[in-house]
Simulated scan of single mutants.
Amino acid sequence: MRVAIVSESFLPTVNGVTGSVCKVLDHLADNGHEAMVICPAAGSPSHYRGFPVHQVPAVAYRQFPVGIPNAQLARLIGRFRPDVVHAASPFLLGAQAIAAANRQDIPSVAIFQTDVAGYARRNRLGSASKLAWRFVRWIHDGADRTLAPSTSSRNDLEGAGVQRIELWGRGVDLDRYHPNHRTRPAAAALRSLLSSNGRDVVVGYVGRVAPEKGLERFAALRGIPGIHLAIVGDGPSDASVRKLLRGMPVTYLGRLSGEQLADAYASFDVFAHTGTEETFGQTLQEAHAAGLPVIAPAAGGPIDLVRHGENGYLFDPDDDRDFALRVASLVVDPELRMRMGEAGRRTVIGTSWSSVCDELLGHYQAVIAARAARRRTPVGSHV
């Protein structure tokens, strides 16, 4: 199979879109398929896993490159002659890629991953939220199939009038994130740093430090005894979050990846996610794989991932006191933490990246077959 992946984000930018695209490319390479990547110009490598990476003109917006539609994109797709076009979190580039695929009679799959309308709501843009959903519908209407990462995002898409939606989640590396890693020297050393007296419960967060992530909510934990906060990540809200949490027991670990990130998860006792705009929530899966109880808002993707009272808690996103109460209940109960952590690990056992990407290949094959069937059906005929 030949797959053209058009992504609004790629290396060296690190985020959920880039991460999932790389996992898909790894799976394609490991299983003998052909692929190419088209992405915004941001200093990306010329190849990834032997597949060519083509950069197109982009402008910077809030530290991110945003691809500009241009004639080069359609030519690249035409020369590659893919069996399917994969539009990752389609925006400007993705919209052009889907349109180009239709002109060239190539099926396309659109991966919904960014809550554009949520951004409009958070920034009090009023009617812009409705316009954002219209834009999302316009993009996805052109695709043969839209893949939503959660039931919440699927419901949002259906409410906006998007059709041909299927669910497709995300995988997690069950070996990299594992409860046994708590005994690794690097993880143990980090835990000693975070819990200097050996008794503090480490409440960890992993993700961007940005407005949409709601880290200001951690201020509600001020005064809870026996905790130490650990924040992994960086971003535009770093200074304001540090100012708000000043005086609290918190360590800022910066951006981590690979084994360092795995060791960070292994040093936590509880994982807390504070943002309400997640279409999925990859870090929640990683925390579950690491054997941690997860506390997250009852909004968006976390609703599918956190089984309230079993592998963590879902708190009222409009009540910071509820968030604090959920954290406090786990801080004082190590047996509950262990029980929920074990349940979290069981939750993700069947969601390896290999199985999830095999499911994606099934979606590719379905839209290829459907497009071929339409070609065989004469215009105006009835089946």
Rank of each mutant, 00 (worst) to 15 (best):
P149G: 01
A120S: 09
S129V: 10
S381C: 08
G300Q: 02
S46A: 15
V331W: 02
R346V: 08
V379E: 13
G207L: 07
E310S: 12
Y48D: 01
K23I: 01
G258T: 06
W133L: 13
R337K: 06
A128W: 11
A74K: 10
R208V: 09
T283D: 05
V306R: 01
P12R: 09
S89N: 12
R242S: 03
H382G: 10
L245C: 07
L244I: 07
D175Q: 14
I111E: 11
L25D: 00
A328C: 05
Y313W: 14
S150E: 02
V53W: 00
A4E: 03
A366T: 10
H33W: 08
D115L: 06
L305I: 15
A272W: 06
W138Q: 12
D333S: 11
T283E: 03
N123L: 11
Q113N: 10
E158W: 06
N155R: 13
R182Y: 00
L330R: 08
V327L: 08
R339T: 13
K23V: 00
L157T: 04
L292D: 03
A324S: 11
M1Q: 09
A264K: 11
V14L: 15
C22E: 13
A143D: 10
A35T: 07
R307H: 12
G380P: 00
I224W: 01
Q365R: 15
Y265S: 01
F280P: 01
A298Q: 12
G300W: 10
V331T: 12
P179E: 00
